[in-house]
Structures are given as structure tokens and as C-alpha cells.
Amino acid sequence: MLTTEDLEKISCQVRRDIIRMVSGAESGHVGGALGAADFLVALYFKIMEPNVSRFTPDGIDEDLFFLSNGHLSAGWYSVLARYGYFDSSELASFRKLNSRLQGHPSTSEGLPGIRMCSGSLGQGLSVAIGAALSKKLNRDEHLVYCLLGDGELQEGQNWEAMMFAAAHKVDNLIAVIDCNGKQIEGPVDEVISLGNLSAKLEAFGWNVSEMYGNDMEDVVSSLKKAQWYTRQEQPVMIIMNTHMGYGVDFMLDQHQWHGVPPTRDQAAAALRQIPETLGDY
């Protein structure tokens, strides 16, 4: 049984991986990935029951995860590698020619752990709903999880999907919105405010709760609580408050770190703040 400290150690290493991957590629997105690292670690290492030894695209009889905001790829790849889907040495190929670790997640390269392409925003929730319906048809009791970005909610397809999930009582799905309040051009509130998000989600017929995504204990307990809310004829949504760039002081809450790679010096400064816990790749 992994303790909270064990999980925190893993997130620490994942954060190092993120910085090293993006810096190594001289390209990529660090801010969002750093913010969502704790959630991804908790989900894979504590909450889901993924069948890591025998990856199948169909994912029958196991929990599934879909990353809608595909630009968090560095964080997801690191968690997949650290969980055992592939060797962590492959993280060094991130965003490079002929890599299975494409800039945004892709199924065409056959990377274990990935079942859907994402990158163009707003599509993941629909896909997760489809996968959840497939599980229902297959009488597969496992759950489907999906991570969305808050800025991504500006895409209308999300709201089509939310309407559908409530109307069709898709209750074997837990969607999580990573609310770091930032998008490329600035604070979400300034670009296009989401307004009262929790009221909107509730009005769309979802079971809505909140958690603090950079507190491992809260993430684990909130996800466990959300599991209890499933199978009650209502889709389940968690508003996850996070900090963009969490773990590196000069990146914290800075929207400029959405998609800009750190320079070599900045990467070194960042890594000095994040201890190596599981060994660098």
C-alpha cells in the first residue's frame, strides 16, 4: 500500500521528468503538467486499476483514463513510464523525430497506455462518455476517468457532452476539471470567464464536488469519495483547483509557463527545487 508520502515522492520525480523532458526537447508545456502531476500520480498509483502488464486498446475489465487537454502530455508520459507501461529511458525521446512520445498524445505510434489522440481541445469528454457507454454495454463494472482543462471548457463540445451525459445518465464516469485558472493568453477570467462554474455544472445535471489538486491527501480522498457517487444515474465531476507550475517557485501561477520551454539555466534552477526521488531517466 502506497502511503501519501510514497505518492508525493512519485509526483516529485514526475515533476523532474516534466522539466527535463520539455527542456530536453526545447519545446513543450510545463505549467499545466506540473500542476496536474499530483492528480495523475494519485489516479494511476492509488485510484485506478490499470492492467499495466497487458495493455490492450479496448481496455476491457480495467479502469480507463482519457486526457482531453493533451498538452499535459509530458506529465502523462512520465506517469505512464513510472507506472511501468514503458521504460522511463524512453522519456528522453519526447517530441523528437520518430518518437512514440509525440508532442501531443497519439495512438498511431503504439505507445502503451494511450487509447485516444488529444491535443485539439474539447474532444476528450465526448470520447470518455463513449468509452463509458461501451463499458455499460459490455457489463464491465470498471470506471472511466477524464481530465479536462479549465480554459478548454470554452470549447462548446464540452457542453454538448455534459448535456448528453446527464440526459443518458452516464454514471460510470468521473470527469475532473483542472482549474489552474490560466490559459495561453492569461487568466481564464480575463480571456473568457467561466463564471460560476460549479453552478453551471450542477445546472447541467452533474454531481459536482471540489478538491485541491496539489494536496495528495485531498486528491486521494476526493477521488475515493467520487467513486462512491458513481452508479447513481448521474455523471460525476470534480472541480480540481491547482496551481500552474506547482513545485517551481518562478513558474507558480504564471500563465507564461503554459507552453514555453525553460532555458538550460531555468531548468537547472527548477530542478534544484525538486529532489530526485526515484532516479532520473
Binding site: G59, R115, G122, Q123, S126, G130, A131, L133, E160, M163
Partner: peptide, 26 residues
């Protein structure tokens, strides 16, 4: 009826749900 999904006037969502349904062999 169990294998038919009315998605309403929301074609983008329909395409995404269809893609998701293939995961699981549909």
C-alpha cells in the same frame, strides 16, 4: 434501443462518443 444513442443536435459530441465507443470493441 440499448444500442441506439440519440445525441440531439450535437454532431461534434456524436463523433467523439462514437470514437469512444470503439474502445471496448463496439
Amino acid at each position: 434501443p440499448d444500442r441506439f444513442f440519440q445525441v440531439g443536435i450535437a454532431e461534434a459530441n456524436m463523433m467523439g462518443i462514437a470514437a469512444g465507443l470503439t474502445i471496448g470493441g463496439k
